[in-house]
């Protein structure tokens, strides 16, 4: 079984790297959205570092949501999703593997880019390290919750706006804890509480989301 999961992971990563534009476009979107805010504000205002945490986090939510559709859509269209459903291996684990692939492709680059954007917003060093830590804990949750939304809407021809309606409300807790702890860290406060909370959310999503994704995929493909 480990072999099957590993093959699936390798296949998804390979497919993503063969089409680098799909991989890079959400990142460019992330960069552009984040830099729109300082342009909209007067750059010399003192609000900039205050807004940085929220802006970077919201842009991360949107960027991760943009790339969600690729998780199951192409597989649905060429029929390989049906083969995955028919395979003898447990579907929740297969779904988890695909989610892991999505996180490696879309989440990790966001985490890597975040310190740079933090500098653009004049965040202090503590804030930037908090940003990296919370994004590292938060982006897998975004992929996990998002996967439920995609699995529910994958059989619809136009899932785009609907997907955001379903997924964004469920992203809110991650946003609150993530952006909140960056802000606290910038003020020199301890961020243990919110970070532990995000860890708890991650564990919860990790255990329950694959089951929901598997159920939703079965409904979408029946």
């Amino acid at each position: 079984m480990r072999h099957a999961l590993f093959t699936l992971l390798k296949r998804d990563l390979l497919l993503a790297f063969r089409q680098p534009s799909e991989l890079i476009n959400p990142l460019i979107f992330f960069l552009i959205v984040v830099s729109l805010f300082p342009m909209g504000l007067k750059p010399e205002t003192p609000f900039l570092p205050m807004m940085g945490a929220a802006v970077i986090w919201v842009a991360a939510l949107l960027a991760s949501m943009l790339s969600l559709d690729s998780m199951f859509r192409a597989d649905m269209e060429d029929g390989s999703l049906e083969q995955i459903l028919l395979s003898p291996w447990p579907l929740p684990l297969l779904a988890l593997t695909k989610i892991l692939a999505h996180w490696l492709i879309s989440g990790i680059p966001l985490v890597v880019m975040a310190p740079l954007l933090g500098l653009m917003f004049n965040l202090p060093a503590e804030g930037i390290s908090a940003l990296v830590v919370t994004l590292l804990l938060g982006t897998p949750v975004l992929s996990l919750i998002g996967a439920i939304g995609v699995a529910l809407t994958v059989s619809l021809r136009r899932g785009g706006v609907l997907l955001s309606l379903l997924v964004l409300p469920l992203y809110i807790p991650v946003l609150i804890f993530g952006a909140g702890s960056v802000w606290d860290a910038s003020l020199g406060l301890s961020i243990r509480g919110p970070v532990l909370f995000m860890g708890a959310i991650l564990v919860l999503a990790l255990t329950l989301a694959p089951l929901a994704v598997a159920g939703a995929l079965r409904i979408s493909l029946e």
Binding site: L152, S155, L166, A212, G215
Partner: peptide
Amino acid sequence: RAARAAAVLALV
């Protein structure tokens, strides 16, 4: 199908 998809969302 709408019923079952919406049910999953409600449970989440």
